Computed example of a mutant assay.
Amino acid sequence: MTENNEELYCIGCGAKIQSDDPEKLGYTPASAIKKGLENDELYCQRCFRLRHYNEVSDVSLTDDDFLALLNQIGSADALIVNVIDVFDFNGSLIPGIHRFVGDNPVLMVGNKEDLLPRSLKRPKLKDWVRQRANAEGIHPVDVLLTSATRGHSLDKLLAAIEKYRKGRDVYVVGVTNVGKSTLINQIIKQSTGMQDLITTSRFPGTTLDKIEIPLDDGSVLVDTPGIIHKDQMAHYLSAKELRIATPQKEIRPKVYQLAGGQTLFFGGLARLDLIAGPKERNGVVVYMENNLQIHRTKLEKADDFFVKHQGGLLQPPTADELGNFPQLARFEFKVKEKSDLVFEGLGWVTVPSGAVVAGYAPAGVGVLLRKAMV
C-alpha cells in the first residue's frame, strides 16, 4: 500500500484503506491513495463518492462486527454520549445498550430538535426522553436537545461533556441515521476549524470503524460505528422517499376535524383510525413532514382504500418499493387525557381525551401513546 507498509485509514469512515478488492471495505485505487496522502485528505472510494456525488454504497459489516466494537466500551473508563433521534426514540435506542455501557455515565442527546414545532415544550420532551430511557434500564446523568445540522446548543453540549467526563475519554454512540457523525463534525469544526472530517449522510451505516479525535488533555473523543437497528422507518425507504417521509424543516401542525369512524392515511406508511371520539367532531393535530400527503376516508372503507391505493395515491412507498415494504401492524389505545399518538420516525398526532384510536405502522416500527407535548 505504501513503501513502508504503513496502515492507512479513511478519515471519513475509519475503514482501513486497501487497493486490492473493490468489493471490500476501505477500497481506494492506488492513484487515489497517493493523491490523498499528498493532500493529507485520504478517503476510501465509498466516502469520496458519498461526499462528492451523494452516492451511497452498501456496507459489508455485520451486526456482530458493530457490536464487537461497541463491547469495548464496557471495559473502558469513559463518558458515553448516546445520540438519539427525537422523532424516533424506540428506533434510536441501541438494543441492549445497558449491557455494554457498564458503570460508565451516560449523557443522552436528543438530535433534530430544530425540526420540532416551536410550540412544543422542550422541558416536557426532555422529561419524556428521560422516562423512556429509565424504562429501558438507562439512567442518564443528563438529557440535552440539539440540532447537529444547525449546531443548536452546541456550547451547552460541549460544556456538559466537559462537566461529566472528568478527564476521561468520550465515546459517542448511536444507531444509524440519528445524526451522530454530523454532530461530531460540528464539535470538530468548533474545536479545530476543520469542516466535514467525518463523512455524513442521511443514509444508514456511514461510520465503519471507530474514529478517535484527540482532546486537549490527552484524552480522546471516539466516534463509534452506527449500530443498525432494523426497526427503523429509514430502513424501509429509498433516499428519495426518506426526504418525503421524514421531517426536513420545522414541522407545521395540520388540524383535522374527524368524526368517529374516520381514518387518516399518512402516505402509505402509517394510518390513524378514530374509532370513537368524545364529540361529534374531534380536533386532531398532525405533526409530520410538511410535504407528506395525508388522505382522509371512512373507517369502514379504509382497508379496501389502502389495498387499492398503496404505492399510487398513497405513497411513499412507491409501487417499485412495495415488494420490500412490510405489512402495517395495528395498535389500539383508549385515550384518558390529551395525548400524542407517536409514529416512530414519522412524527405524531395529538388526539383528545376520551377518544379510542388505532395507529398502524410497518411491522417492527413503534406506535405509542404519550402525554401531549403541545
Results as ranks from 00 to 15, higher is better:
Thr2Ala: 07
Glu7Ala: 15
Cys13His: 08
Cys13Arg: 09
Gly14Ile: 02
Ala30Asn: 04
Glu41Leu: 12
Glu41Lys: 14
Cys44Trp: 09
Arg46Asn: 15
Asn54Lys: 11
Ser75Phe: 07
Asp77Gln: 11
Ala78Cys: 14
Asp85Arg: 00
Asp85Leu: 01
Phe87Arg: 01
Pro95Ile: 00
Gly96Met: 01
Gly102Pro: 09
Gly110Pro: 05
Arg118Ala: 14
Lys121Phe: 15
Leu125Thr: 10
Arg130Lys: 15
Gln131Phe: 12
Ile138Phe: 06
Leu144Lys: 14
Tyr171Pro: 02
Tyr171Gly: 06
Asn177Gln: 04
Val178Lys: 05
Val178Leu: 05
Ser181Ile: 08
Gln186Phe: 02
Ser191Thr: 14
Thr192Glu: 09
Asp196Gly: 12
Thr199Trp: 04
Ser201Ala: 09
Arg202Ile: 12
Thr206Ser: 15
Leu208Ile: 11
Asp209Thr: 03
Lys210Phe: 13
Asp223Ile: 06
Gln232Trp: 00
Gln232Phe: 02
Tyr236Lys: 03
Leu237Phe: 06
Ala239Arg: 06
Ile244Arg: 06
Val255Phe: 08
Gln257Val: 01
Gln257Asn: 11
Thr263Cys: 06
Gly268Val: 13
Arg281Thr: 12
Val285Trp: 06
Val286Leu: 03
Glu300Met: 13
Phe305His: 04
Val307Glu: 10
Gln310Glu: 12
Gln310Cys: 08
Gly312Lys: 13
Gln315Trp: 05
Pro317Asn: 05
Asp320Arg: 13
Leu322Tyr: 07
Ala329Asp: 10
Ala329Val: 06
Asp340Asn: 10
Phe343Tyr: 10
Val349Ser: 00
Ala355Ile: 03
Val357Asp: 03
Val357Gly: 03
Val365Glu: 08
Gly366Ile: 02
Leu368Tyr: 11
Lys371Phe: 04
Ala372Glu: 11
Met373Asn: 07
Val374Gln: 02
